[in-house]
Design a protein around this nucleic acid. Structure first.
Length: 137
RNA sequence: GCGGAUGGCUGGAUGAUCGCGGGGUGGCAACGCUUCGAGGAAAGUCCGGACUCCACAAAGCACGGUGCCGGGUAACGCCCGGCGGGGGUAACCCUAGGGAAAGCGCCACAGAGAUGAAACUACCCUCUACACGGGGGAAAAGGUGAAACGGUGGGGUAAGAGCCCACCGCGGACGUGGCAACACGUACGGCACGGCAAGCCCCACCGGGAGCAAUGCCAAAUAGGGACCGCGUGCUGCUUCGGCGGCGGGGAUGCUUGACCCCCAGCAGGUCCGGGUUGGCAGCUAAAGGUGCGUUGGUAACAGCGGGCCUAGAUGAAUGGUCAUCCAUCCGAAGGCAACUUCGGGGGACAGAAUCCGGCUUACAGGCCAUCCGCGCAA
RNA sequence: GCGGGUAUGGUGAAAAGGUAUCACGAAAGCUUCCCAAGCUUCAGUUACGGGUUCGAUUCCCGUUACCCGCU
């Protein structure tokens, strides 16, 4: 993470915090601040069998691009189950969000106990697409 | 072959494709190339250290821990060897295992009686009124209990009793072996020694406190505050007027004494509250390193030497997603006496580094190896 | 991550080695024409597994769950 001192021509858009989530999609960033997660949790929500999605559209004064965060609480299971669920969520986000996500939105993907780590991967993908449609529309 | 005991190893493999974190390197940059990337328990955080900061002359007290003996180790509550006790036909396993004649305390209920001794039933003797009463003897039998004042057998006696004897047990003494725990032996004592110290305690030994969210640096931002505590403001000598010395006072992260040291008027210090930040870098991964090989010493743990191989460093936290084939394994169907073969389906133990290391404990599908014991069969 | 603590009926608490107690609540019954009040009854593997002890909620060890502090 670089300190925010790099010279940027357009000063109206502040540089974003957070590393690049996916190299092929340079506009996607990972949420790291607890405050961002809390704000998303009070935004639009959509539950599916495999994924629980929270999302919100940011204001114009905030940074651009797609931002995404991942949450797996202790309810999901032990450390192995949590890590596994988080990895699958990250993979789903990488494949789906670059085409179906909208810029200037924050997304938080929440893992669910048992199912997120065990469901077929194709179903996770379709779940996320359906949840995104509901949240956007 | 069956049933066990002990020690150790392993913990799916290969490939395709899309990705992730660290290091190196090229490039102004975008990015490219290259290399490395979870465990035996990474877990629980139960011990011991390293390291960092704070405190620290030392002693005593308190508190906590350890607890047969000897050794290993940086250290340990760990490991090795030995001893005592218990279990098993055996291999082997289990064992917080110092002190109960230093003291205090507890032992409910039941029972006559719970460590001071005592006597309910029953026993024996005796008195009389010859009894269901009185007096005495005795502590073997009954009963109670977790535990009943040595046990078994014989002698002895009115009945009995370590009253006497033998054996066992106990005790201190002596001798022998052993570094020691302890073992063996000898004669003696003659019951005087109940249990609990994971009750207080005694004895021996060990331990300063906090922890990588420690700690240090940089940047940014707000405030430049409030409350409380502490308060010694002293006497005196020398003086080059800067200070120095003596007495006295204050200051110690469990408490007390307290050497040395610091301070004694500077409005600084300490504590709490309030306010701001929740960034970056270092610490941060090669060390009492691990492992297997040879060799030397040692019964062993382990230690020394030589050379080989391996060793991740994230921070909303990388080490993965998807697919295919094989492998281990399970279920169903068909064929077959069976071994097994074919087809279809399920399905991969426990579990994820977070400062590091040595242990312990707990979890763990299945597979493999070595040594040993018992039984059966064969030779 | 590092450090510390707790666990007892449904809830909140006692018990200091010797039969698990109290309050509130729930349910059932008695009482009453009905309700309230009152009385009676009911329900515990003392979180789980071992050990010490004659005997453990209590003492010791391990496991699990929950809670708290530290940037």
């Amino acid at each position: 993470m670089k300190p925010p001192v790099a010279p940027i021509a357009d000063q109206t858009v502040k540089p974003m915090d957070g590393p690049l989530a996916v190299s092929v999609c340079p506009d996607m960033r990972v949420l790291t601040k607890r405050a961002d997660f809390v704000r998303c949790s009070s935004g639009r929500r959509q539950g599916t069998p495999g994924i629980h999605l929270q999302a919100r559209e940011r204001g114009p004064d905030e940074a651009g691009g797609i931002r995404v965060g991942f949450t797996c609480s202790k309810k999901v299971g032990n450390a192995v189950a949590r890590n596994r669920a988080k990895r699958r969520l990250r993979e789903v986000a990488r494949l789906i969000l670059s085409t179906h996500g909208r810029p200037d939105w924050d997304y938080v993907l929440v893992g669910r106990a048992e199912v997120t780590a065990t469901l077929p991967f194709t179903q996770l993908q379709s779940d996320l697409i359906r949840a995104l449609k509901k949240v956007h529309g």
